[in-house]
Amino acid sequence: MSTTQSERLRALLEPLVAKAGLELEEVKVSAAGNRRQLLVVVDADEGVHLDTLAEVSREFSQALDASDAMGDAEYLLEVTSPGTDRPLTEPRHFRRNTGRLVKLQLKERGELIARIMTVDDSGLDLEVPGVKGRKPKPARADFAEIARARVEIEFNRKAGEDQAAEGDESTEEA
């Protein structure tokens, strides 16, 4: 039984990702002009720091050069963390976005925009924002009923509103 290039790449890179305390989200090979591009997406519960991306990128490069997983042709390696536009498909994606506003397409109920309050094994506890000064309402969505989900970018979120959920900004000690 033959394995695909993507499977071989995952097998090569996954131990390096785990060693760095990250999770391998995606491995994608595509054409980029005369050469190929290898896109590797990694993530972690607390987010991924730029220094960590640089370190795993160097390790990936060394491992790929030492193997034949990409063949002899030139390729461009891109190592990144998921963007806010990526679909939320796994329970860990929802857990990592607790406190954020999401747009859910529910199989039976249609579209729902709500803030993720908690995530458990079966689904999400949500808070639907109130309209025109009304109070927010609690809601529940089980994973089985979610057809699609994405984070909604909030440009007008008031300062002090659940900033612990913002997670994108990190503080570094000098």
Rank of each mutant, 00 (worst) to 15 (best):
A63P: 05
E154S: 09
T52D: 12
D45P: 06
T89K: 08
A149R: 04
A31Q: 14
T4E: 14
E74V: 03
E166N: 13
R96T: 10
R150P: 01
E78Y: 02
S81Y: 02
A32I: 02
L77R: 15
S6N: 04
S30L: 02
G47D: 07
L16P: 08
G33N: 07
D45T: 05
Q37T: 10
L50C: 08
E161C: 02
A141N: 03
I113C: 05
N34M: 10
Q37I: 10
R157S: 08
S2K: 11
Y75Q: 03
L88Y: 02
E169D: 09
Q5W: 08
S6F: 04
R92D: 00
V48W: 02
R148M: 07
A139N: 04
K158A: 06
S170Y: 13
D43S: 05
A44R: 14
L53C: 14
R150C: 01
S30N: 07
A66K: 00
T3C: 08
E26R: 01
D168R: 14
V40T: 02
M1L: 09
I146W: 07
L24S: 03
T84L: 15
L88H: 00
A149M: 07
D43W: 00
R100I: 06
L12V: 04
R134I: 09
V42T: 11
L77W: 07
A73W: 02
